[in-house]
Design a protein around this nucleic acid. Structure first.
Lengths: 135, 135
DNA sequence: ATTACTGTATTAATTGAATAATACACTTGA
DNA sequence: TCAAGTGTATTATTCAATTAATACAGTAAT
């Protein structure tokens, strides 16, 4: 379609987590934060596949699963749009909770590396300052 | 063997990352932080496999790879011990750097969830306070 | 010597994920 | 009407990871 936002997805085939899951998770987050609003069109499976050098069917698998979850709606012959479903839009506390699994991982790693919470906090601060994004 | 520390490894078959890699990564961290000292014995492949309901060959694959990397040494007929190799022992700044890939992931997720650095920092603080470990 | 441990080599089978190449039904603008 | 665009079903193939069931050579204590 003509109008579809640049999603800026990060897809890494060697990352361990399946590609279709990476796509699902990231689109879900963009919808949760309303970076993708209800009705917004998504890039076609072929476009997205070419952008990330992956197979269109892999993108389709992600889109289909998101449709089952009620996050996307399929418009036959047109494409996928963000579903009219406010359950997919999360408030701040719900979105923060989505960081938990990664924080569990971070905490496990730090523990095994014998890094204290204080040392970790100050390092994260430095890290974020260096990898600054625009808020 | 009789003497082998409880490693407290966290193995999740459904985690996406291969089981043998999960084991490798965690043992490498324990050695880096000297939680496992040079000469320390590791649990036998059969014991570790039973503890986590996985296959002994999967553990063996992790051990072999760590031997190739110089982290472990195989004592034939006895078992695996931490190799006499100070390169595996990392100072604090090197250990902190090992958190980078998980921090990249955290930062990506937060960005897509439209969570600011400040909001994330204060949430992490709460999270760590709640999931307190002993430092 | 026997027993009970080590790690590992081997072979076979299974599973999940991804790719590739078509094909089809649908929509829409020219 | 036609051409170009949607997502998807289908079939076959490839690949990595894991499991399973043995088997073997080495060590060490009884």
């Amino acid at each position: 379609m003509a109008n579809s936002k640049l999603l800026g997805l990060h897809v890494s085939p060697s990352s361990g987590t399946p590609i279709y899951r990476q796509i699902m998770d990231q689109i879900q987050r963009l919808v949760a934060s309303k970076s993708l609003a209800i009705g917004d069109e998504l890039p076609s499976v072929r476009i997205l596949a070419e952008q990330h050098a992956i197979n269109p069917m892999t993108v389709s698998k992600a889109y289909s699963a998101l449709e089952v979850q009620g996050v996307l709606t399929r418009l036959r012959g047109k494409g996928m749009v963000v579903a009219k479903n406010k359950d997919s839009q999360l408030d701040l506390s719900q979105r923060l909770a989505q960081l938990d699994s990664t924080l569990e991982m971070l905490s496990l790693e730090a523990g095994q590396l014998n890094i204290s919470d204080e040392q970790m906090m100050s390092y994260i601060e430095k890290f974020l300052k260096f990898h600054a994004r625009k808020n």
